[in-house]
């Protein structure tokens, strides 16, 4: 696994570098690519991004640490981020979040033993009229309830078993 020299990313990296006035500006899109490749922003990803951008790895690590959407630890295959901010909470998001952790048997921020799901709560995702909601690997799933969620968990498990997802 690598980003540098990986044909899968070549075009994307090039187009990101072309967008900005400085190489450094591409650090955020490139960190997303590193995360995509390794599942999280791991030390290899940091050094590769640093190399591409001619930055000190400390600078790249610093950026990765500031933003919550870069994970500096491995996550489950499905990274579930439940919005429990005020508007969602007024619609029962706290209960939904607690239920989901129970359902999967994990603590806040924890990952299921099969490394399938990581659950954590996040701040407002601009979907306050569609609570409860969550984002799964950065894709929104809205207007949830327990039944709907059970169905989704089953669907994702099946997808993973089929090697998709």
């Amino acid at each position: 696994m690598a980003i540098i020299g990986n044909p899968k990313y070549e075009e994307r990296i090039k187009s990101h570098l072309a967008k900005y006035e400085t190489k450094r500006s591409a650090v955020m899109p490139l960190l997303y690519i590193a995360q995509e490749e390794y599942g999280w922003v791991n030390p290899d990803g940091i050094s590769e991004v640093a190399e591409i951008l001619n930055l000190d790895p400390t600078q790249v690590k610093s950026i990765a640490g500031f933003y919550t959407m870069y994970s500096e630890k491995p996550k489950g295959k499905y990274w579930l981020q439940v919005c429990t901010d005020l508007p969602c909470a007024l619609q029962g998001a706290d209960d939904f979040h607690a239920w989901l952790k129970d359902e999967l048997g994990v603590e806040e921020g924890g990952t299921t033993k099969d490394e399938m799901f990581t659950v954590e709560h996040v701040m407002c995702l601009a979907a306050c009229d569609k609570a409860p909601m969550l984002q799964c690997n950065f894709r929104y799933v809205e207007n949830l309830d327990q039944d709907k969620m059970r169905g989704l968990l089953a669907k994702w498990r099946a997808e993973a078993a089929n090697g998709r997802g």
Binding site: I46, D56, P57, T58, Q59, V60, K61, S62, G65, F66
Partner: peptide
């Protein structure tokens, strides 16, 4: 001119790191 120190995380967790080698 050797930017080998930086902040990591944010808010009250903000802390100095180096990740250089």
């Amino acid at each position: 001119g050797d930017d080998v120190l930086a902040f990591h995380e944010r808010g009250r967790r903000l802390q100095i790191i180096t990740n250089s080698d």
